[in-house]
């Protein structure tokens, strides 16, 4: 058995290495690299929507409500219920729904967390 302190050399080496963490909320936010397929906050393209309500029917978290506006039936996305599974984006026949790269979903009022 070796003497204690096998890890000591590695610890010393790490003293001169670059920091592994990111000072996330305050600085270096640009260092956070999100891949292309990231599933973040839903983005909705109203002109593409044909009002088929498939997204409403497949949503496992009941995060989608259907309302009527001047162009017919359309969904609203309640982000505070969303589990980011991406089922709605997958089932949408016209690709009107995509999952974007926004992951900071904190708000003081509920309405701010609705995608219309």
């Amino acid at each position: 058995m070796k003497a204690p302190g096998y890890i000591f050399a590695e610890a010393l080496r790490n003293l001169i290495k670059k920091r592994a963490t990111v000072l996330y909320p305050y600085r270096e936010v640009e260092k956070i690299h999100l891949p292309d397929g990231f599933r973040g906050k839903i983005e909705f393209d109203r002109p593409k929507c044909i009002g088929c309500q498939m997204c409403f029917r497949v949503c496992p978290a009941k995060a989608i409500e259907i309302i009527e506006d001047e162009r017919g039936k359309r969904p609203i996305f309640l982000i505070y219920r969303c589990i980011y599974c991406g089922q709605c984006a997958e089932v949408c026949p016209t690709k009107a729904i995509t999952l974007g790269k926004v992951f900071e979903n904190v708000a003081l009022r509920k309405e701010e967390l609705e995608v219309r």
Binding site: P35, G37, F38, R39, G86
Partner: peptide, 21 residues
């Protein structure tokens, strides 16, 4: 995992009948 599936922890990669990506 994030690169392959779209999320760090909850991967949602397997679906009935295969995988998503």
């Amino acid at each position: 995992l994030e690169l392959m599936t779209g999320n760090r922890v909850t991967t949602s990669y397997n679906v009935i009948g295969g995988v998503r990506r």
